Computed example of a mutant assay.
Amino acid sequence: MIYATLKLLHVLAIVVWIGGMVFSHFFLRPAAMQLEAPVRVRLMHDTLQRFFAAVLVAIGVVLVSGLWMIGRVAKESVQAGLGFAMPLNWTIMAALGIIMMLIFGHIRFALFKRLSTAVAASDWPAGGAALASIRMAVGINLALGVVIIAVTFWMA
């Protein structure tokens, strides 16, 4: 029961993270491009601020649940007298997930800081440049997230 609950929390946290990136990248940003720069940059800043707070929580849930599930399976294998070798798809998932978390850290604590500084100074060109950098990094993270999902299903 605990394993199933952890797996559910893990998947829901991934849905929040990946789904939010899809929404922002393919729906919100293109719609916001029709707005004047001051309105667009403020809207994206405020939206991303809320989304990034949710992603920080999601990352915590993903880390704790993922490590707990791996540890639980490893412990059960060892207790049964078997060795534990982490499956390849879990290894790929964990490695790419850590890379995604590091990229998110750069987005949240470096690129978003630039955006916040630009918004506070009403420097719309700098805000647009910061948004472009965020968009590129989010695109990379989204691609990695899709690869993780594909590997998880294809190698299951």
Rank of each mutant, 00 (worst) to 15 (best):
Met1Phe: 13
Ile2His: 13
Tyr3Phe: 15
Leu6Asn: 04
Lys7Glu: 06
Leu9Phe: 10
His10Asp: 07
Val11Arg: 08
Leu12Phe: 09
Leu12Tyr: 07
Ala13Asp: 06
Ile14Glu: 13
Trp17Arg: 06
Trp17Leu: 14
Ile18Leu: 15
Met21Phe: 03
Met21Lys: 01
Met21Gly: 03
Val22Ser: 10
Phe23Tyr: 14
Ser24Lys: 08
His25Cys: 10
Phe26Arg: 04
Phe27Trp: 11
Leu28Ile: 13
Arg29Asp: 12
Pro30His: 02
Ala31Ile: 10
Gln34Met: 12
Gln34Asp: 13
Gln34Pro: 05
Arg40Ala: 05
Arg42Cys: 08
Arg42Lys: 15
Leu43Lys: 04
Met44Arg: 08
His45Gln: 14
Asp46Ser: 12
Asp46Ile: 09
Thr47Met: 14
Thr47Arg: 11
Arg50Asn: 10
Phe52Cys: 04
Phe52Trp: 09
Ala54Phe: 04
Leu56Tyr: 08
Ala58Arg: 08
Ala58Ile: 05
Val62Thr: 12
Leu63Asp: 09
Leu63Gln: 08
Ser65Val: 08
Trp68His: 10
Met69Pro: 02
Gly71Trp: 02
Val73Asp: 08
Val73Gly: 03
Ala74Ile: 06
Ala74His: 08
Lys75Thr: 12
Glu76Tyr: 07
Val78Glu: 13
Gln79His: 12
Gln79Leu: 14
Ala80His: 06
Leu82Ile: 09
Phe84Cys: 04
Phe84Glu: 06
Ala85Arg: 13
Pro87Gln: 02
Asn89Cys: 10
Asn89Gly: 08
Trp90Arg: 12
Trp90Gln: 15
Ala94Met: 15
Ile98Met: 12
Ile98Phe: 13
Met100Asn: 15
Ile103Glu: 09
Phe104Cys: 03
Gly105Ile: 01
Phe109Tyr: 10
Leu111Ile: 01
Lys113Val: 03
Arg114Pro: 01
Leu115Cys: 00
Ser116Cys: 00
Ser116Asn: 04
Thr117Ala: 07
Thr117Gln: 02
Thr117Lys: 03
Thr117His: 01
Thr117Asp: 05
Ala118Thr: 01
Val119Cys: 03
Ser122Cys: 02
Ser122Asp: 09
Asp123Ala: 07
Trp124Gly: 05
Pro125Ile: 03
Ala126Val: 00
Gly127Pro: 00
Gly128Ser: 00
Ala129Lys: 09
Ala130Val: 03
Ala130Gln: 03
Leu131Thr: 07
Ala132His: 09
Ala132Gln: 14
Arg135Asn: 14
Met136Gly: 10
Val138Lys: 06
Ile140Met: 01
Asn141Cys: 10
Val146Arg: 01
Val146Gly: 01
Val146Phe: 01
Val147Met: 09
Val147Arg: 05
Val147Ala: 11
Ile148Lys: 06
Ile149Gly: 02
Val151Phe: 07
Val151Asn: 07
Met155Gln: 01
